[in-house]
């Protein structure tokens, strides 16, 4: 099956990956469905980029499709569980909503475990557990604002964003895709943080960069802000170069997403220059 995707003036031919993507998404939605949770909480977001990266790893992989799909779904469930727990704050708000967010995350992580346990994927259970451990260690480092170097800060973000996908790539015997996923997801996160910083001045990442680079500054000067943006942009460039340099059979849809992200980068970079 060939699907044509129109993006501006560009036409990209995409094979049946979009169909697989939709099918996986539907299966995940079904697994996540809980009538009471749905009644009180918004449906959890399913990150299509992560799904697309996972599916891309399958091209040329020797893993049976049904087996691979199970691994992808399990990885997504765990990612959604972690993302759900990120929504828990100390801001007060509706108590029942907070309680259900905690339990929803717990349920999703239980479902991930159940899916892999049922299919006898014991090695992957261990592997994903290691990733979850690393992710939470890095989240605490970030949350506690204890990172001492900007390079370590970005590495922590990279781990948080991609650790599960890196393990999935190992399972699919395609570790090079793990590196690709790392660069892609780190770039995406940096772009989002950069955009938030430019638009609103509020970005967790930039706050911490500022604390590391200018520990005494109460409010940042224009030059200090520019310095941080330059630093971030250098990392984004690095990620982009790594993506373009990867010798991987990147499918059409993923090519399109990479191009979109890079376009996003260019647009933001332009805006930054304009705003001085």
């Amino acid at each position: 099956m060939v699907v044509r995707i129109f993006s501006g003036t560009r036409v990209v031919h995409v094979d049946d990956i979009t169909v697989k993507l939709a099918s996986l998404k539907e299966q995940i939605e079904q697994l996540l469905h809980h009538p009471y949770l749905r009644e009180h909480l918004p449906a959890p977001a399913i990150d299509e980029d992560r799904l697309l990266l996972s599916l891309s790893m399958l091209d040329g992989a020797s893993t049976a499709p049904s087996e691979a799909e199970r691994c992808i779904i399990a990885m997504m469930l765990m990612q959604i569980a972690l993302d759900t727990h990120d929504e828990v704050t100390d801001d007060g708000g509706d108590l029942r909503a907070r309680q259900l967010v905690v339990l929803a995350g717990d349920l999703y992580s239980g479902l991930y475990y159940e899916l892999l346990a049922r299919s006898g994927e014991t090695a992957l259970i261990r592997s994903f557990a290691e990733a979850v451990r690393d992710i939470n260690e890095q989240k605490v480092r970030l949350y506690e604002k204890k990172v001492e170097r900007i390079e370590s800060l970005f590495a922590a973000v990279g781990t948080i964003e991609s650790a599960l996908l890196v393990k999935l790539a190992d399972r699919m015997a395609a570790p090079q895709w793990g590196q690709f996923a790392y660069s892609y997801l780190l770039m995406r996160r940096l772009l989002l943080e950069q955009e938030a910083f430019i638009r609103t001045g509020a970005s967790v990442l930039f706050e911490q960069m500022a604390q590391i680079a200018f520990p005494r500054a109460k409010t940042l000067t224009k030059e200090q802000k520019r310095h941080l943006l330059r630093f971030c942009r250098r990392y984004i460039d690095g990620c982009r170069e790594a993506l373009f340099a990867a010798k991987l059979p990147v499918n059409g849809l993923l090519q399109l997403r990479v191009a979109e992200l890079s376009g996003g980068f260019q647009a933001i970079a332009k805006k930054t220059v304009e705003e001085g």
């Binding site: 704050t89 100390d90 717990d106 014991t122 090695a123 261990r126 979850v132 451990r133 939470n136």
Partner: peptide, 20 residues
Amino acid sequence: NRFAMYTGDYLFARSLERMA
């Protein structure tokens, strides 16, 4: 609260590692 969420998820992961 947020720190408690991370700690719980960390302990969950450690548990699965042990079980493995």
